[in-house]
Design a protein around this nucleic acid. Sequence first.
RNA 1: GCGCCCGUAGCUCAGUUGGAUAGAGCAACGGACUUCUAAUCCGUAGGUCAGAGGUUCAAGUCCUCUCGGGCGCACCA
Length: 568
Amino acid sequence: MVVALCPLIMPAMKERVRDCVLKALKSMLENAGADTELLPPIKVEVPADEKFGDFSTNAAMTCAKPLKSAPRKIAQSLLEELKKDDLFSSISLAGPGFINFNIKPQKWAEDFSAIPDDSSGYGNHPKREGEKILIEFVSANPTGPLHIGHGRGAAVGDVLCRLLSKAGYDVTSEYYINDAGLQMENLGRSTLARYRKLLGKGGEFPESGYKGDYIKDIAQEVVDKDGDKYLDMPEEESLPFFVKYSADTILNGIKDNLKRFRVHFDIWTSEKSFHQSGKVQKGIDDLKKSGAIFEKDGALWLNSSADGDTKDRVVKRANGVVTYLAADIAYHKDKYERGFTKLIDIWGADHHGYVARMKSAVKALGQEPDSLETLLIQLVALKRGGKTVSMSTRGATFVTLEEVLDEVGEDAARFFFMTRSYESHFDFDLDLAKEQSSENPVYYVQYAHARISNIFRTAVEKEAMSGIGNIPTDVDWSVLIEEAELRIMKKSLQFPEMVSNWAEALAPHHITHYLTDLASMFHKYYNMHRVVTDDKKVTDARLALIARLQTVISNGLDLLGVSAPDRM
RNA sequence: GCGCCCGUAGCUCAGUUGGAUAGAGCAACGGACUUCUAAUCCGUAGGUCAGAGGUUCAAGUCCUCUCGGGCGCACCA
């Protein structure tokens, strides 16, 4: 009977090495009559430098202290134990006491052959029970178009959703629409002023109004549709229309942008709805009872300074109007009530002063503060003509996400955003991005994918394969003896573990680096060896190899939401 | 003044949660298409990891301080 090897059930190579080391350590301790409880945590990892082997462990070094013995001496006796194992082709002692392992090539090939050859899901982890994650991101006010900074947050949030989901977590994405408060009135007034001006009635433009051209466009739409209907109406009557019309129009534009950018939201939640449903007031009342909210100077305050915030924060002003924080508390309460156990909020770094009060609010709600994780996306400094473009929605000096997408494309923008940690400032030089678009790393990775597809087309043409998708089976993997081939197998096999690591670290930028490495291995291989040759055995094995490599590349690109073209 | 983030090659940034001689892309220079796509590959060059202490077998990574840059310090959102 043939047992199908499933890459998810089969322990990864690293785990098997780890087990071997632990076993050897134990037996060494027993032989020495020592207490096996003495075992300190050990690490098995892939060395940075390939010449140190496939894996290495620091076991001998961390054991040096409890065993009161020299690291190299311990390593020597461990080595004797480990040599009995069938997994390794060589084991050696190096440096201050590292033990380095090389795995037998056929063991790598066995594992590698279990990767699907049809680009179907690889690296998917089984569902993890217990945790329900909500990722809230972008959440830009519907007062203006998305700019490049929003684009970064959108890309990070969306990729994190894809990543966590692949890693087995239950993830939901949500956009919080800040459609309440003073800024909405400000928006309505701005449109109204432009509307009046279009109809020849001057009047003052609001001092802090939104000056962008998109406001004029919206006003023009109103003129085209309704003529001068609102011109002589008292402002109390016309303003609500202008607020709603402007916000709806802008929100629709935002939705279009995000759709084009392949950023998906499961849920769109309106801030206004929390005010209207009374949940904001109820949230305040509840926290008043629990003592987290107190009254002073006629206003209501959240006692956030007790939790490390620099001061207490007003939730309801003396004039009876609630603050943004009050609505946000109600919103987060609602998230927990919907059953989410882990909240990830992705904010612009300029909101970092907000973290402490939100954590405090979460605690006041009776939740574990650590159940809320705030990721701060550092600001994007946009450069054009060597100069930094300041970005202010109200001042109307910004480059929109849409403009960037027009210039560099969705694939490049998404990939580019993910080449850096979101914790780092990001200089986005538009001229450079445009100029070097053909040199962008995204093409490097996509090209590897396309080249593989092209090899398949050649193979079919030369009748080495019966058709596209008919990857040879019954492959003799032992003919793949080239160093470049083994490297591709090893790197590919790291993918599932990497998915899990990246997800746990909430560090999506590693994906692009991994893919660039993998693509580089392929391009080198391509330049050194031919896949379609006169030797059928070798051709079959190589076709099987690159089919699996292509699976990993396409799964990686899919994580990034970047296309995997068959031709370029 | 207080708080958060950052400081690594000329530029933009990684650095596998503390490991071995610190890496990649771009820019520069020199090579490789009669071949499955040269959007590729090979080679050369580039560093006091801002600085000073500390923690330990081991620090770019952790702690303290100093310097430099960004961002925040609202009864705006």
